[in-house]
Simulated assay, not measured.
Amino acid sequence: MNRALKIFISVWIAIAVIVNVVAIAGMFMHDGFWGGLARVQDTFSPFNIFNWIMEVILFAPAILASMWLERRKSRALETYLKQAQ
């Protein structure tokens, strides 16, 4: 199960990064270089709260799976240490 979670996290992050790269490429293709650059700067600005929320939603499954994986590892370690005593 841990291996499946690791694979899921890796695949999800790769897909999310690809979605962002394709979106940036689309901005450049639609608006030209300078227009695309301005649009990318506006979209990925630290003050664009909507984009930050959308990025968190996009990466949320990977973040939650990572938290679940860490919890599984810590519980397995606790169980192992209890049995070793």
Rank of each mutant, 00 (worst) to 15 (best):
M1E: 12
M1V: 09
R3E: 14
R3W: 09
L5P: 03
K6E: 15
K6F: 13
F8K: 05
I9L: 05
I9A: 05
S10A: 11
S10Q: 08
S10K: 08
W12N: 09
W12L: 06
A14D: 02
A14Q: 03
I15V: 15
A16S: 13
A16V: 05
I18Q: 02
V19E: 15
N20D: 14
V22K: 02
A25W: 07
A25E: 07
G26V: 00
M27W: 01
M27N: 01
H30G: 05
D31G: 01
F33H: 01
G36H: 00
L37A: 08
L37K: 02
A38I: 03
R39F: 02
V40C: 03
V40H: 01
Q41T: 07
T43P: 00
F44L: 05
P46E: 04
I49F: 09
F50L: 12
I53S: 05
M54Q: 09
M54V: 08
M54L: 10
E55Y: 06
A60L: 13
A60T: 09
A62I: 05
L64I: 15
S66V: 04
M67Q: 12
M67Y: 12
M67T: 10
L69Q: 04
L69V: 02
R71H: 14
R71L: 14
K73W: 09
A76V: 04
L77T: 13
L77V: 12
L81C: 05
K82Q: 14
K82D: 13
